[in-house]
């Protein structure tokens, strides 16, 4: 095969990778042992982290990309894709994860932002990116920067699904509002949403985002995962919800099955029986402002 005939990291290849994750659960892991548990439970991918979000909250200080030796160890341990988080705007952390062979990079508000003005130019990378969003405008800005997957921000590390629900509903209703608009009306809406006209037009015509849309941030039980699926997401990220629960192995299997049977209440009832304690939850309204992660990056 002639090298000039090969095209790496095209938009189709990046978005295609994201679409292979649909109907799946992506699990946060902090070491190779947890990664193997996730793979055995049926995770479609793992997110390699230094700490899960609830521990990032406890630790405080500046949260950064994970130690490369940890990421490399997780890559060696499993056959499913490995994702990694970088700070918003920290393109050098992203270059490092790409060089390690990470399959998708999460430019994440869970870590401390490195740039309060600019996100990473994701089109400059071969590997695809996922980014958080709270509403349609934010989702479209990230897609414009090259994100191949969007996830709700939710409020990570709280075990409280309320923000993920809010963000999922905001994106959906934002798209509903576009339908039936002509191009003039859409131009006006693009100014309000601070989002590119072309991407909004795609959303209007498709009736959905032009990339895969996952839910994340506060999903702690099989029913939480099924709720997000019924609200129309394509799959879920589970952060602290698995390895901070009483029986991670069983919780991991149960959430994978809940996503598979998201619209079958009798199966969900069966799956949810006797799982032990879910992760301890946090009341979002009592969080001091500097501990609220979802307002980072816009």
């Amino acid at each position: 095969m002639k090298l000039e005939e090969l095209r790496f990291g095209t938009e189709l290849i990046k978005r295609g990778f994201a679409s292979m994750q649909k109907g799946g659960v992506i699990m946060d892991v902090v070491d190779a042992e947890q990664a193997v548990i996730a793979e055995e439970a049926g995770a479609v991918a793992v997110m390699a982290l230094e700490r899960v979000p609830s521990d990032i909250r406890k630790a405080g200080g500046v949260a950064r990309m994970a130690d490369p030796s940890k990421v490399a160890g997780i890559i060696d341990a499993v056959s499913i894709p490995v994702m990694g988080k970088v700070r918003i705007g920290h393109f050098v952390e992203a270059q490092v994860l790409e060089s390690l062979g990470v399959d998708m990079i999460d430019e994440s508000e869970v870590l401390t932002p490195a740039d309060e003005e600019y996100h990473i130019n994701k089109k400059a990378f071969t590997v695809p990116f996922v980014c958080g969003a709270r509403n349609l405008g934010e989702a479209c800005r990230r897609i414009n920067e090259g994100a191949a997957m969007i996830r709700t921000k939710g409020e990570a590390g709280t075990g409280n699904v309320v923000e993920a629900v809010r963000h999922m509903r905001a994106i959906t209703s934002g798209i509903h509002e576009l339908q039936g608009m002509d191009d003039m009306e859409l131009t006006a809406r693009a100014r309000v949403l601070e989002a590119p006209f072309e991407i909004l037009a795609e959303c209007r015509d498709l009736g959905r985002l032009p990339v895969v849309n996952f839910s994340a941030g506060g999903i702690a039980t099989p029913c939480d995962a099924a709720l997000m699926m019924q609200l129309g997401c394509d799959g879920v990220f589970v952060g602290s919800g698995i390895f901070k629960s009483e029986d991670p192995r069983r919780m991991a299997v149960a959430i994978v099955e809940a996503v598979n049977h998201f619209d079958d209440a009798s199966v969900l009832a069966e799956i949810s029986k006797g799982l032990g304690e879910a992760m301890p939850g946090l009341d979002i309204h009592t969080l001091p402002e500097h501990e609220v992660l979802r307002f980072r990056g816009n």
Partner: peptide
């Protein structure tokens, strides 16, 4: 499985 390598090795050809 994964005979080409990781996602960075995924391509159009």
């Amino acid at each position: 499985r994964n005979a080409f390598g990781r996602q960075r090795d995924s391509c159009e050809m």
